[in-house]
Design a binder for these strands. Sequence first.
DNA 1: GTGGTGACGCGGA
DNA 2: ATCCGCGCCACCA
Length: 114
Amino acid sequence: MLDKVTKERRIQETLRKIPHGKVATYGQVADLAGLPGRARLVGKVLRESPAILRLPWQRVLRSGGCIAFEKGTPQADKQKAILQEEGIVVVNYKVDMKKFGWQPDLSELLVMKY
DNA sequence: GTGGTGACGCGGA
DNA sequence: ATCCGCGCCACCA
């Protein structure tokens, strides 16, 4: 079984690969990190990782493309603002995953050989 | 050990 | 749309 630190590392590594101008979902990150069904863990890691790591937390959305934070909260508005600065269209705290959803290609995934 | 709580996800009513 | 239950699992009371 993977230890806590390894799971955390895999998730952080996956997060780093989300390209500018694209977004991913918690579940997608978990899957790519080799941790299917562990979307909640992604949120936990994102919440606890030190800012110094510069993880693209703003590019992670719930399935369906909506911002995880409650509408109107400073965190949700901040995330919306950053995403828009990155060229992503955010309508009512939601993003069109068909247009902005990250779809990693084989080469990107192969580099992640754990 | 039991139960509640999450930056979650999905299906059903 | 909204509410609920369940799966998931680390943490804490």
